[in-house]
Design a protein around this nucleic acid. Structure first.
Length: 892
DNA sequence: ACTCTGCGGAGAGGA
């Protein structure tokens, strides 16, 4: 039994006399059943009365195991000895966040801005943990250490660490674990489990336990601890895992902390308790403490406020973060228990920090809301939302060389989902939070001709693979906060003057000509090369943006500049590198995951594994380093410096997303088109919806150039886009581009086309009906149209089909030959086909938010080179003036 | 109401 719902009213706690002496109590009113039922009164007794002080109207509250009694016909509830009270249970708090919060609330806050820091103790800590996991999975110690250290080659190199010395260090720590594992404490029936992912619906806590032994949590710590008792924060951490294990039917009473460094220390020099394994008992008091700490954190985050340090019992004098804490509070004018140093930044900076912090944290809330749907939605609802693959048939599992597991399954269902190869997912034996669950990575997801989907997932533990769920990670959020923090607190004065509109960008001079036959492109390279601060290159569809960008990279390198080449997507990064290769330049290093980088660029990819010194040198010496903007915030790239950062697809990046890249360089060049798709942001009203590119191009038109000649579309096709989005300035580069025709393709005879498709821009109304986000009749018609183009001799890979909704994409995919690319507008951005068919789906009206952003239409219409066929409901399209104009153009 | 790319993720330690 539990009560869950919004708080309606809160009373001040008071002290009352009871049979058991004086106790605190606070009465609150809430609406259970997620707010659907009438309000009830709940008395929060004892230490839960403290929690009442955190509550404000509107917060969600959860009370477990309450007592109930009728009082004058009304139900009254009260907490019992078994109760927990949880504030905002859908706000997912990481176990390590609770640990940090208990240590110091301010440290919890500051650590959001230093997410990716490279330090030897951290790398070593991770290595020892990995070896620990390997040992539990039965791997030999020597092999494990050797392999894991080799894998960390790049990071160790950047830290100037020698491989042999590190291996010895890790090995001596790992020996302590090995000895402990063999120490008779273990019997044959010892049940071990390593790396357990735990997600709590009740407590709003998630985390990964290092190991679980006979149902009890075991936490590994690479540091030392000479006290008899384990460190309090360490106990808090292990207690969190115990709490979460409790929800999975276990009742841990003991936690174990394993301090590996204790075993390495010299007994004669160190005093105190040097035993590595320290046990402690986990009672209800500690469990409740952990939940109350989480509640404080969740309440503070509810209105996105900034902690001062007074929330916890931190002693600032002993704190190793004291300096950072004081500088941040001084610069941002924040209240801090540690005090502050230095003067405040200009108000523009502080307001910006505030705004972006709130917007980014709001994004985090949206992700958490998505996260909560793992259990608030039924399996069927998840599947209907394309967020889960259910009813998979396990096809066995096998241990890989590194001890982790390959899980195989099949699916006969033709269900579509957002899950794609390479994604991180929750793999479970039936339910993502209630069952046996592990984070995994989809390495294969392929449907064969008879509709069977083969699924392979890699995970640390051997899950029986019956279900996959999209994993809504807020991983990237701290990266954005870090980028914003670095730009404001660490960025140069000059850079900040540009970002905050206090100084116009300046340019040097050059006599060189970079591109002969295109003035705007040449001007773009000129700006990039001579910029003292920044340059902005606006590239409408087909205008040779990538070519120009690559030319600029080369020109900069010829001048001895070191270049960071970045973009929003992996595909754009690889495209730019391809273009560089085509221009005869290949002195670049590609940073990225094996899965993200295209096959053709794998040879340029920087492998992390290897000899430290050599790996680090490869990165440090490369004239051009390329990677996505998200990677630019990684610990590895933060160790690098550049003269210029060039960022492609900048119109699709949020401001903090862009800052991650440009923080690494002296100057920056943003390339993009703000008339195409904007950043994807979960909260529609978010400030993050406007890119830095768009803001700066409006602010500094003199630092910008628009590429105005397009090499892609026939005149007839480009006209509407040019008029509507580019003030008519977009023009075909040559008469040949303007007048291109379908018949120019070999094997195509345009006479063979039905008369409706004769024009370069055609419109067809299939008289269909939209159900859900699918229009079957329209999908049929699209298939017929595709067939007509094919019959006229157009090759399959010259045809692309675009629809706004994924469901319609799936419907069309089933109806056309598999060689034909069918995809959403969003995923088609950046590519082009000779023939494009656009399915609008909507009938009668256009009242879906997807039709509101006209930029999406711009993208869809400008993918076609020689023929464009619009398929949709005339009434629906005529219901909106913008789409009506589009129709008039199509039918003219 | 919809679109969805990146990040191995979470946690590695210091005192």
């Amino acid at each position: 039994m539990e009560l869950r719902g919004p708080v309606v009213a809160v009373e001040e706690p008071r002290t009352v006399n009871t049979r058991d002496g004086t106790r605190d109590v606070a009465e609150i009113t809430m609406r259970p059943g997620r707010g659907e039922e009438p309000p009830v009164t709940v008395s929060l007794w004892g230490s839960w009365a403290e929690t009442a002080e955190l509550l404000v109207t509107g917060m969600t509250l959860l009370v477990t195991e309450p007592s109930r009694e009728e009082f004058r016909g009304e139900a009254r509830y009260a907490t019992t000895a078994e109760s927990y009270v949880v504030v905002e249970p859908e706000f997912m708090v990481d176990v390590t966040d609770i640990r940090e919060w208990v240590q110091c609330s301010r440290q919890y806050y500051l650590s959001k801005f230093t997410s990716a820091s490279l330090s030897y103790p951290l790398v070593k800590g991770s290595l020892v943990h990995e070896v620990f996991g390997d040992l539990l999975r039965g791997r030999d110690l020597e092999t494990s250490v050797e392999e894991r250290v080799a894998d960390a080659g790049l990071k160790l190199g950047l830290l100037d660490r020698d491989r042999t010395a590190v291996a010895e260090d890790v090995q001596s720590n790992a020996r302590a674990i090995e000895r402990w594992l063999q120490q008779g404490t273990l019997t044959e029936d010892d049940e071990w489990r390593s790396e357990l992912t735990l997600i709590s619906e009740t407590f709003g806590i998630k985390g990964r336990a290092d190991a679980v032994r006979r149902g009890d949590p075991v936490e590994l710590k690479t540091g030392k601890n000479t006290d008899a008792e384990p460190r309090f924060e360490d106990k808090v951490q292990a207690t969190c895992y115990a709490l979460l294990l409790g929800e999975h039917g276990q009742t841990p009473e003991t936690g174990t902390l394993l301090y590996t460094k204790n075993a390495v220390l010299n007994r004669t020099e160190e005093t105190g308790d040097l035993s590595p394994a320290k046990e402690f008992s986990i009672g209800p008091g500690l469990l409740q403490f952990v939940v109350r700490a989480r509640n404080e954190l969740a309440a503070m985050e509810y209105d996105i406020s900034v902690p001062t340090g007074y929330e916890s019992n931190a002693i600032c004098e002993y704190c190793f973060e004291q300096d950072t804490c004081m500088v941040v509070s001084g610069r941002l004018d924040q209240e801090s228990k540690a005090g502050s140093v230095g003067g405040a930044l200009p108000s523009a900076e502080r307001e910006y920090f505030d705004r972006m912090y709130r917007a980014t944290e709001t994004e985090r809330r949206e992700i958490h809301r998505e996260y909560a749907k793992l259990w608030t939605q039924s399996a069927a609802e998840r599947a209907a939302d394309d967020k889960a693959l259910l009813g998979l048939q396990p096809q066995g599992r096998s241990q890989r060389v590194d001890g982790t597991w390959e899980l195989r399954a099949e699916n006969d269902d033709t269900a579509v989902s957002k899950i794609r190869e390479g994604d991180t997912v929750l793999a479970s034996d039936g339910h993502p939070t209630r069952g046996d669950t592990e984070l995994g990575r989809v390495v294969r997801l392929e449907t064969d001709a008879d509709g069977t989907t083969e699924i392979i997932v890699h995970a640390d533990e051997p899950i029986e693979l019956r279900r996959l769920d999209v994993y809504p990670s807020d991983y990237g959020i701290n990266g954005l906060l870090t980028a914003m923090h670095d730009a404001v607190l660490k960025g140069s004065q000059r850079r900040r003057d540009i970002l905050f509109g206090r100084r116009d960008p300046t340019f040097g001079e050059t006599n060189a000509t970079f591109i002969d036959n295109n003035t705007a492109q040449n001007r773009a390279v000129e700006l990039a090369v001579t910029a003292n601060d920044c340059a902005l290159i606006h590239g409408p569809p087909g205008t040779g943006k990538t070519y120009t960008l690559a030319r600029a990279v080369r020109a900069l390198c010829e001048r001895g500049e070191r270049v960071l080449l970045s973009a929003f997507t992996n595909r754009a990064v690889d495209n730019a590198l391809e273009q560089l290769r085509e221009q005869g330049f290949s002195e670049f290093v590609r940073i990225g995951t094996e899965h993200g980088v295209s096959d053709s660029m794998q040879d340029a990819r920087l492998e992390h594994r290897g000899e430290p010194e050599e790996r680090a040198a490869t990165l440090r010496n490369a004239p051009v380093v390329a990677g996505t903007a998200a990677t630019c915030g990684s610990s590895v790239l933060k160790e690098c410096e550049f003269d210029v950062a060039i960022v492609d697809e900048a119109g699709q990046l949020t401001e903090p997303g862009t800052l991650a890249a440009i923080n690494l360089a002296d100057r920056f060049v943003l390339v993009g088109d703000h008339e195409q798709l904007p950043p994807v942001v979960r909260d529609d009203d978010s400030e993050l919806g406007t890119s830095l590119f768009e803001r700066l191009i409006e602010q500094y038109p003199d630092a910008a150039v628009t590429l105005d000649k397009q090499y892609r579309m026939a005149q007839r096709i480009q006209y509407f886009s040019s008029q509507t989005f580019y003030d008519g300035q977009l023009r075909p580069a040559t008469p040949a581009v303007a007048g291109q025709q379908l018949a120019e393709l070999s094997a195509v005879s345009s006479e063979a086309l039905p008369s409706a498709l004769q024009d370069a821009v055609a419109f067809v109304d299939p008289n269909g009906a939209m159900t859900g986000n699918v229009n079957r009749q329209e999908a049929d018609r699209v298939a017929e149209i595709v067939d007509a183009y094919r019959s006229a001799g157009v090759a399959a890979d010259d045809i692309g089909v675009i629809a706004p909704f994924r469901a319609q994409v799936a419907a069309i995919t089933r109806r056309v030959p598999s060689e034909i690319d069918v995809d959403t507008v969003d995923r088609f951005q950046g590519s082009a086909r000779a023939v494009i068919v656009v399915s609008f789906v909507a009938t009668d009206t256009l009242d879906s938010p997807i039709f509101e952003d006209r930029r999406r239409v711009n993208v869809a219409l400008t993918r076609a080179k020689k023929a464009l066929c619009l398929v949709g409901d005339e009434d629906a399209l005529r219901s909106d003036p913008f789409y009506e104009r589009m129709l008039e153009w199509a039918e003219s």
